[in-house]
Design a protein around this nucleic acid. Structure first.
Length: 960
RNA sequence: GCAGGGGUAGCCAAGCCUGGUCAACGGCGCAAGGCUUAGGACCUUGUCCCGAAGGGGUCCGUGCGUUCAAAUCGCACCCCCUGCACCA
């Protein structure tokens, strides 16, 4: 079975690609350009990735079938060190890597060649295009394929950066980046692509406080510069050897590890001596800002690896400081050992500086008591610290002790006070990592100053404002993201855009020691697909991709003649490329996974806004969520899911495509579940069978009501699909086409529908409805209908309003409900019926019902008003109490209905005639004799007087 | 910490923006019946509780509230998840 389905898939793919169905050129139709954010070349992709890609193909197929000229180009992103690191691992025959490559279908011979990063990229480009995207039948325009390490692409990127510079969006300033001391810049993130350990570490910003102590400065590192007003003493670890460092003519004292790290951040540091921690104890130093002399006291919690190994003491707000102070004050012996004056030490009291909501003036003292901590080595101090820091930072205000900062929220005071101290020369900044981080090469990773780093200035005001304005006009899904994106754009700051080191990518055009970083070279690229085709086919040479050429092609600057003259490109071609841009751009949809929400999508938008004319700014973003593994995210490197080609072979491409589209909303994560896919596969088989069944119908008679019903349903469903697809609701489309329509068709056949002409009409439309999601199956059925062209190129069924027959749909609904009622009675009573009699509503009740509907529509309905209207009708009045009762009941029911419900109930049809027409069917379904009467019929047999219960839409039922 | 998303019947999962058609789409699973030599294939019916006449009761994380009416709106609480910048 699988073998045969893959044959069918390949057959249609060959035919599409041979005919060039997937290739798009400008014409008179409206255009629709869509891409997915191209994947990074870091190894094999897994079945989860195909979810978003499938959405793009299905959407573009739908757009093509609804009168648009659809363009769907693809490419890959190879910038970075993914390919380099993979090539290295292959070259060194790393076991896990080799196994992973082989398991994904790479052969030993191919592996031979993959020790080189460039070849790794080319290898995977081929895998992505041929084993994934073509295998899934995507109608992508393969001629436009490009990759970020292709030389022509790089010309484009260099042009983009020149434009950014022209607009003043490139800035240069110092930057502190994570880097291996040996290999240069590395990414510190939990995926640990570049690392051996420490991926969870965060960059922390210390404020270095300078304490004058004789002719030297003791350097304390703090995370809470706002607490300087509460300083009472200074801490040093007596067992640690500190170093003396020459810094701008001053002598600084700090721990050895601090010096080692600081060298990467500050220029001209020089080691000039060593000082034992013990020697510092008992000395006095001058605290910054408050300019008070404080005593240096011993503390074991000072870790030379953290900060500078020296700490300023704020016992009011730092639990560590308070407990250490307490310990010392209680320890007579210790004070004697360090020759401290016990009275002076005991005299040190915390100074309240921050008012924290829900806390007293000394939160550190308070929490130590509350938690019952008595020793400075209690591990719970970590938690105590976190609680006090968090509460103080968010809810605290500086109090009267804090000079000009009194009354200010801590959040604000922190930045202001740090700035103040730095500007007065009493403090500096120092960056460190929260955990030890080790590079893949084994050397430590530190924070390193890059003095001349280039940034793209995403914080730029006009850029941010224009981007936000544009985002407001865009079609962004899901709606939550549309609502959030202005906030994201505001938050987006300047971003380092170049780096050095071992890295694939484009040389920075203004200084080629830099290579453009991975996110910055993948933002404006959709427009490059309009040129890549000409380069790929050989109509353009590399040296012709000049600034002038791109200026004209993408910005319309200059004129075709001079571009042609200066580059040697054929004049017609220059004009054609510009015309292509004018036709295809802007991009209608950029679709990508949720990981792109805070980085790629905003950068994508802002680069378009920054570089291009307003008319070429993007029009849409579609964010999709993931397919996850049972034990969490399916990971590229760790595997955990079947390789894509294997899944295609095993389940079939159409079932997989249907699975992706239908299993859940695109905006929710889904757990990969093979059983679910099996179900979609059998669903597809049932659909083929049902299609066959439809083909076999050969009734020749006149249009019957059930024929009208099926046609009406077809049109109703087509309308729903088209309406839903305005929001690219693929799941809704799948539900209507593969589930609801299937049920309609089954019901039609069950009801005795057999018209050959209706069946062929419906099958024709149904096949076209299937074409966007399951194109191979659709082509196969289409071919069986002896159609000439591809169903992929046919028109998506339109809605013929005249064929929508609400009365017949309602009548059929009425029939189903009547049968359901009868069945329920049978179930509850347990009777095996000999005969079932239905009595349809009497005329007078229909009149009351109609009056009720009329009044509900006019918003005039209530119990007295309807009763009054009924009593105004002499004929109804003659029914007396019966009429009044029914009128009250009707009003009570209708008043609860929504206006849609009222419309539905207002549809009029002949219930009696309809039941008569369906009597044979009902008899067959209920398995007994069926009789139908109107409650108005005086001769109707009614031994149990059931007919009285008959009402509109609700026939009375008598079972014997 | 900052920002965002979510909790729906045995399971997966729609609905929530724009309150009433919601006992709540659809699927899976389960049960009964049919078809069949047989079937994990297919078709029909059922699947919260009660009910020997089409009815009633309770329900959408928890608790309040708004409303004639709440899974849908508001407030508070509990619990899960995701992204956070040189990683694409």
């Amino acid at each position: 079975m699988a073998g045969r389905s893959s044959e069918i898939e390949r057959k249609w793919q060959e035919r599409w690609y041979e005919t060039g169905v997937n290739e798009s050129e400008p014409d008179s139709r409206p255009k629709f350009m869509i891409i997915f954010a191209y994947p990074g070349v870091t190894g094999y992709l897994h079945v989860g990735h195909m979810r978003g890609y499938t959405y793009v193909d299905a959407i573009s197929r739908y757009m093509r079938m609804t009168g648009h000229n659809a363009l769907f180009p693809v490419g890959t992103h190879a910038t970075g060190n993914g390919a380099i690191s993979l090539a290295n691992r292959i070259r060194s025959r790393d076991n896990a890597t080799i196994e992973y490559m082989l398991a994904n279908g790479c052969t030993e011979e191919q592996l031979e060649n993959l020790g080189d990063p460039q070849r790794v990229v080319h290898f995977f480009n081929d895998v992505y295009v041929n084993q994934y995207w073509k295998r899934f039948g995507f109608l992508a325009d393969w001629r436009r394929f490009t990759c970020t390490i292709y030389p022509d692409y790089q010309k484009f990127i260099q042009w983009q950066f020149r434009k950014l510079k022209d607009k003043g969006l490139l800035i240069q300033k110092p930057y502190f980046a994570t880097a291996c001391v040996e290999c240069g810049p590395v990414a510190v993130d939990p995926s640990e692509t570049d690392l051996q350990k420490g991926g969870r570490a965060e960059t922390v910003e210390y404020t270095l406080l300078k304490f004058r102590c004789g002719d030297k400065f003791l350097i304390a590192a703090t995370l809470r510069p706002e607490t300087v007003y509460g300083q009472t003493n200074f801490w040093a670890n007596p067992d640690v050897d500190y170093v003396e460092v020459r810094k701008d003519g001053e002598t600084w004292v700090m721990s050895r590890p601090a010096f080692d790290k600081m060298r990467y951040q500050k220029d001209g540091l020089e080691l000039i001596g060593v000082v034992r921690g013990r020697e510092l104890i008992g000395r006095r130093c001058l605290a910054p800002v408050i300019h008070r002399e404080v005593l240096v006291l011993p503390a074991m919690f000072c870790d030379p690896k953290v900060g500078t190994g020296l700490v300023t003491s704020v016992p009011s707000d730092a639990p560590d400081d308070w407990i250490s102070l307490l310990e010392l004050q209680r320890n007579e012996e210790l004070m004697r050992e360090y020759d401290l004056n016990p009275a002076e030490v005991r005299g040190i009291q915390p100074i309240a500086i921050i008012d924290t909501k829900g806390w007293g003036p000394l939160p550190a003292v308070e929490i130590i008591e509350k938690m019952g901590i008595v020793r400075s080595d209690d591990p719970r101090l970590e938690d105590a610290k976190k609680v006090v820091y968090r509460e103080g930072f968010h809810t605290g205000r500086m109090n009267q002790a804090c000079g000009e900062y009194a009354g200010m929220p801590v959040e604000r005071a922190k930045d202001l006070m740090r700035e103040m101290m730095i500007s007065r020369g009493e403090a500096e900044l120092f960056y460190d990592l929260s955990d030890e981080v080790v590079c893949r090469c084994g050397k430590p990773v530190v924070i390193k100053k890059v003095p001349d780093q280039w940034f793209i200035d995403y914080g730029n005001e006009w850029l941010t404002e224009d981007s936000k304005r544009q985002a407001g006009t865009m079609h962004i899904l899901p709606p939550e993201y549309y609502a959030n994106i202005p906030g994201v754009l505001d938050w987006f700051r300047e971003r380092a855009c170049v780096r050095q080191g071992n890295w694939l990518g484009t040389r920075f055009p203004f200084d080629d020691k830099w290579i453009i970083e991975a996110i910055s070279d993948s933002t404006l690229y959709p427009i490059y697909y309009l040129v890549s085709k000409y380069f790929n086919e050989g109509s353009l040479r590399l040296d012709q991709l000049t600034e002038e050429f791109f200026d004209f092609a993408f910005l319309g600057k200059g004129d075709a003649e001079s571009v042609s003259e200066s580059t040697g490109i054929d004049l017609e071609l220059v004009r054609r490329i510009r015309a292509d841009v004018e036709y295809w751009y802007p991009l209608d949809i950029n679709l990508g996974g949720k990981e792109h929400m805070t980085v790629h999508f905003p950068a994508f938008l802002m680069n378009h806004v920054g570089v291009l004319e307003e008319k070429y700014w993007p029009r849409g973003i579609f964010v999709n969520w993931y397919i996850i593994g049972k034990l969490g995210k399916i990971s590229k490197s760790k595997g955990g899911a079947e390789p894509i080609p294997g899944a295609a072979e095993h389940f079939g491409v159409d079932p997989l495509r249907l699975y992706y589209v239908h299993i859940a909303s695109p905006f929710a994560d889904v757990e990969w579940d093979e059983e679910a896919i099996e179900n979609y596969r059998s669903r597809m088989e049932r659909i083929s069978k049902t299609a066959e069944e439809l083909k076999g119908l050969d009734g020749k008679g006149e249009m019957d009501s059930i024929d009208c019903w099926l046609l009406s349903r077809l049109n109703t469903r087509a309308a729903r699909v088209r309406n839903g697809m305005k929001e690219y609701d693929l799941r809704g489309m799948a539900n209507e086409v593969y589930f609801e329509m299937m049920n309609d068709i089954r019901w039609y056949v069950r009801r005795g529908g057999s018209s050959e002409s209706i069946a062929s009409r419906v099958l024709d439309a149904w096949t076209r409805l299937m074409a966007p999601i399951t194109p191979h199956a659709a082509e196969e059925i289409w071919e069986g209908l002896r159609k000439e062209c591809f169903v992929s190129l046919s028109n998506f069924p339109s809605v013929i309003l005249d064929e929508i027959r609400l009365d017949i749909e309602q009548a059929e609904e009425f029939l189903k409900e009547a049968m359901a009622d009868a069945n329920e009675i049978l179930k509850v009573t347990g009777i095996s019926p000999r005969r079932v009699t239905f009595y349809t509503s009497p005329e007078w009740k229909r009149r009351i019902h109609a009056k009720g509907i009329e009044m509900a529509r006019a918003k005039e309905l209530n119990v007295p008003s309807l009763t009054k209207a009924v009593m105004a009708d002499p004929e109804l009045k003659s029914k007396g109490k019966e009429a009044a009762d029914f009128s009250r009941k009707t009003a009570e029911t209708l008043i609860k209905c929504s206006s849609e419900e009222i419309d539905r109930l207002g549809v009029v049809f002949d219930e009696f005639a309809y039941l008569i027409g369906a009597a044979a069917f009902v008899a067959q379904e209920l398995g007994c004799e069926v009789a139908i009467f109107s409650a108005d019929d005086p001769n109707a047999p009614d031994p149990q007087r059931k007919a009285r219960a008959a009402q509109p839409r609700r026939p009375a039922i008598f079972i014997e």
